[in-house]
Amino acid sequence: MARPALKPWLRYLRAGDLLTLALAAAGCAASFALLWRGEIPDRAIVRAGGRIVAELPLDRRAELTVDGPLGHTRIEVEPGRARVAEDPGPRQYCVRQGWISRGGAVAICAPNQVSLSLNGGGDSHDSLSY
């Protein structure tokens, strides 16, 4: 397969164009860094029945058992991440979600009315409709 010949195009670039190009590329890179920087969470927030029952710092190990209408939900926290380790819910969605570590991430055990969320991530939406 013939390689696309890029070299002939180079002569249309003038010295200042390279400067403009470099600035534009730097601007692109900066926009990624600025706008796509996920906030790093430092707390795990545990809710039961809609009320906050615990806020655990994400810099050390911790374990917590929360009671809901179906039984006990066990939350595990490790440095930088957290998960629902056990839950009595029938479908186990929140357990199968595994470790969550992004700012604003949530694991919801709806049947037992327990949720585990990480702070940060601002007021992001999990759905948008037009």
Partner: peptide, 18 residues
């Protein structure tokens, strides 16, 4: 207004695109 000796259509195009 950029000096054309140094800045060609590519600069203009990038400016316009952004």
């Amino acid at each position: 207004r950029l000096p054309r000796r140094w800045f060609g259509p590519v600069s203009h195009s990038l400016l316009a695109a952004f």
